[in-house]
Design a protein around this nucleic acid. Structure first.
Lengths: 368, 368
DNA sequence: AGTCAACGGGAAATCGATTGAATCCTCTTT
DNA sequence: AAAGAGGATTCAATCGATTTCCCGTTGACT
């Protein structure tokens, strides 16, 4: 056999394969595979053998081929993470929570971004299945996507969690914040500051989140015997593009201002809406919080950076992400029977009032 | 042969394989594969055959197995996208640009998030190589990661682009904004508004971006024969965690205020720093822009949502992302020789001044 | 009639692992 | 001494495609 001279021409150093390790160690590929994977059979492999194989593999720098492995074993060690909108800070933080947990496990997240488009959601779910993810986490914002997700997935007996939206499905887990308690807390906060005339920028009627928050608000109002002014309660139209809620809220607040109905505080559906309201107040020459207190919902990162800081109801997004990942991991580590126990549960995380600069006591001397 | 009764026990409907299509169509697997892939050889396949095969494949709903395909063909149709920090809105928008382009191609982005940790960068680059991505885009913020990236990658002759950081590498492409022109434009804007006493929150000295922006600023100052006040020019310390630049800038601005040196405008290294400065001004009871104009850099999404809107230098992040993706795609579509032509170039995108509410004419009546 | 190229298509090797069944030892047990 | 019981490894099939050769027809041309 001629040994080819080492030249630049040799294009591929030919991947280091399991076979190479086998030959180098003197054992068969089977044994090497078994050892390197700590497969069940490896308990019958002599300790010295294991050591030697591991050593040689390490020394050679062997890395199994992901594709070959997945093809044969039908396991991919990947978890699909479908994010409805990666530019939405709400989604982003949840995603970070998910990753945090997954990084500690041996699973790799495959992240896809649906760009707020329902069609992409479907397409990407498909792609993830095609890539044989072993679990699926969907990070939802308020986009209403088709829940045919559900069918597709449960067909494949895939552990599935949705974060940020409560699906009433028997097979899909969900993690959401306690919207009702959040609404209640926000309202209570304003009430305690002395506000009685409060305007509301409610979420689109289509969103369950908004309805729940509203329910919390009403509960408090009833308890406090506070009558709400119907003229200051409007819902945003449902729009599929996130940033537009700023504009919608801005416009709505302007309408409130023009209506002449007095109010000293405003409670917004979420932080972005709060920004929109603040803009309207700002343009009208009103000061936050001096002339009008504003409360948001979510606590996206910038809310603590703007001035004044936005008082808001915090969703524990990181924790929600972590919980979701835990859910999947737990499910993957259990037997099929146990697994059924997990399905369809929905976890409710606590909402927390964060008081910052955008709310203040109602001024006793009120401009008429 | 007994035919097993159809029961719930049958766990897997057994994937539909190429072979099934072959049998159903009466042709061999080879032919089917060739036709379905539009492989070069398919030009010698009769049109009727193609039609029939395609029809049957479609009808059966055949989807090739990603893993088998990649194993054999050594192609994965994936592009690695390494994002330094997915919670950084700067990165996010670039990412979106990348995705936009990639969605139109047949390549799938594999997104990984390094969480601002240099170690993860290395680990993830490794993982991407292991997954045989055919190209790699790195979305950098200001994190200083080891450029051993470079070695690893160029070894593998992988088209590589870095967005947001100018690497001086002969093999890696980069896409950056025109920092110098941006600095110049920001300065010019303030000057034209009548500001002469300007404070600067400069970026960490380690970052080339900051140095370039500063260069632009000086160039304008010299041209306008404007003397800058050294006491109002400080750099932020280098920190590896993004949000902390808010605090650093906040602190620095406070020092400026306490120093007693007068200034009517402040130019910040980036938008987050601008937020920090605004907070300090706000706390000191100063109004933006009435008492002090503020200019940022980047134009992250919230900068248009806060009140007043932040005047800033826009980086065309979406376009930068798109350009990066185009770069990779072009490289993948060219022969090896052509490809070499692309390597090592760095593209400079235009910076754009965006005037919003945070800057205003210097007031003629100045508080002493 | 014979040669040759183009056309249409198929057989089988291959990619790099995993895995169920089989084999070969070495002791024990009866 | 034969049978059995494990322990330690290995054989060979398999996962589902792609790809490299190769084979048989035609038809044109010499």
């Amino acid at each position: 056999m001629m040994v080819k001279p080492m030249t630049k021409l040799r294009p591929r150093p030919r991947r280091l394969t399991l076979n190479d390790v086998a030959k180098a160690s003197g054992f068969s590929p089977s044994t090497v595979s078994i050892v390197l994977n700590d497969a069940p059979l490896s308990q019958n492999v002599a300790a010295t053998t294991k050591l030697k194989i591991r050593e040689i593999a390490e020394h050679l720098g062997y890395r199994p081929d992901v594709f070959a492995r997945s093809l044969r074993s039908r396991k991919t060690q990947t978890i699909g993470v479908l994010v409805i909108d990666l530019t939405d800070p709400y989604c982003t933080l949840i995603l970070q929570g998910i990753e945090r947990r997954l990084m500690q496990s041996s699973y790799l997240p495959i992240i896809m971004d649906a760009h707020n488009e329902p069609l992409q959601v479907e397409r990407y779910v498909d792609m993830m299945l095609e890539r044989r993810v072993e679990g699926l986490v969907t990070v939802a914002n308020w986009l209403l996507f088709d829940v045919s997700l559900l069918e597709n997935i449960s067909d494949h007996r895939l552990p599935t969690v949705v974060v940020g939206r409560d699906l009433e499905s028997p097979t899909i887990n969900s993690v959401i914040v306690d919207n009702e308690a959040g609404g209640y807390a926000a309202m209570e906060h304003l009430y305690e500051l002395g506000h009685r005339d409060i305007a509301f920028v409610c979420g689109p009627r289509q969103l369950i989140d908004g309805r729940l928050r509203w329910k919390g608000i009403r509960t408090f109002a009833q308890k406090a015997k506070l009558r709400l002014n119907r003229a200051l309660i409007q819902s945003l139209p449902y729009v599929s593009y996130a940033a537009s809620s700023f504009d919608a809220s801005h416009k709505l607040t302007n309408e409130y201002l023009e209506s002449g109905e007095p109010f000293t505080a405003l409670l917004a559906f979420d932080d972005i809406c709060a920004y929109g309201a603040i803009r309207a107040l700002f343009e009208a020459g009103l000061r936050v919080p001096d002339d009008c207190s504003v409360v948001g919902f979510d606590d996206i990162p910038t809310s603590s950076l703007i001035s004044p800081g936005l008082t808001t109801i915090r969703q524990p997004m990181l924790e929600m992400g972590e919980y979701a990942a835990d859910c999947i991991l737990k499910s993957l580590n259990s037997s099929d029977d146990e697994r059924d126990g997990f399905f369809g549960q929905s976890k409710i995380m606590p909402a927390e009032l964060l008081v910052r600069g955008s709310t203040a006591k109602r001024r006793t001397i009120q401009t008429p």
